[in-house]
């Protein structure tokens, strides 16, 4: 009798992902689905899909879901969690969504100490709309709206969201992880699971920033894109726990 070592999580539907080949979104979806199944909360989870490549995330998670206006996922999550406090509510947002148009919503959701979980996928680019520059685009990184590379003199330095969120007194748990290799994927899953454990224990606002890639937007192969995360993204976006005010989960 063969033992199954690994198979697709039942936290995901049978719908094929609509993401480009090698996109980190798929990996991160898997980690969320596996965490919800392992914590036995899949049946009472509610996902909030953003605007961006992951706008169709409600098709992929095998739980209830709703799709919010651009950047407003934390506002929708606030409403759902307050009406249904027993449900496990999480938003899944990209950097164009969370770090740009939705900055006010995410800061004030954390400021109010809302008890839901945010999965923030930072790939430094607006992927869906054609690879435009985002607030998180690295200096000198070429995008379709910064064809000579991002210049600090006109657009400033990339926004460090985890560092910013960790300053908010009511935020409970902020960690930055990456998914560029198997060791970091394992660490990322631990962080995501911990964020959900905090929510289950009513400990308040938790956010996991996942450094991700966009092979098509970065104009490289998926394998090169994962290596670029390690070589270019992580030196600017240091991984680690930025705030943990929850004690033992």
């Amino acid at each position: 009798m063969a033992n199954i070592v690994y198979e697709k999580s039942r936290g995901l539907t049978d719908t094929p992902f609509t993401y480009c080949p090698g996109c980190s979104h798929g990996t991160i979806h898997k980690l969320i689905a596996e965490s919800l199944v392992e914590l036995d909360v899949l049946d009472k989870s509610i996902a909030i899909a953003p605007v961006g490549c992951s706008v169709l995330a409600y098709e992929f998670f095998n739980c209830d879901a709703i799709q919010a206006a651009h950047g407003r996922a934390p506002a929708v999550a606030t409403g759902i969690k307050r009406v249904e406090p027993d449900k496990i509510v999480f938003t899944y947002q990209g950097d164009g969504d969370l770090a740009s148009i939705g900055t006010a919503e995410i800061i004030h959701a954390a400021h109010r100490g809302e008890n839901f979980t945010v999965i923030f996928v930072n790939n430094g680019i607006y992927g869906m709309t054609g690879g435009q520059m985002a607030p998180t685009t690295l200096i000198n990184q070429k995008t379709s709206t910064s064809p000579y590379g991002r210049q600090e003199s006109t657009t400033g330095k990339p926004l460090l969201v985890s560092e910013m969120m960790a300053q908010i007194p009511s935020a409970t748990y902020i960690e930055r992880v990456s998914v560029h290799d198997i060791r970091h994927i394992t660490q990322a899953k631990k962080a995501i699971k911990k964020a959900f454990e905090y929510q289950i224990a009513n400990k308040g606002f938790s956010m996991v920033e996942v450094i991700a890639d966009c092979p098509v937007g970065w104009n490289m192969t998926p394998v090169d894109a994962r290596k670029t995360i390690a070589d270019a993204m992580i030196p600017y976006y240091p991984l680690g726990v930025y705030k943990d005010a929850g004690g033992e989960a």
């Binding site: 198979e7 996109c23 979104h25």
Partner: peptide
């Protein structure tokens, strides 16, 4: 490792 890295959940692994 292949199955965990695969973004599209293509791979299942059995130990037998």
């Amino acid at each position: 490792i292949c199955a965990r890295v695969c973004p599209d959940s293509v791979i299942s692994v059995e130990r037998g």
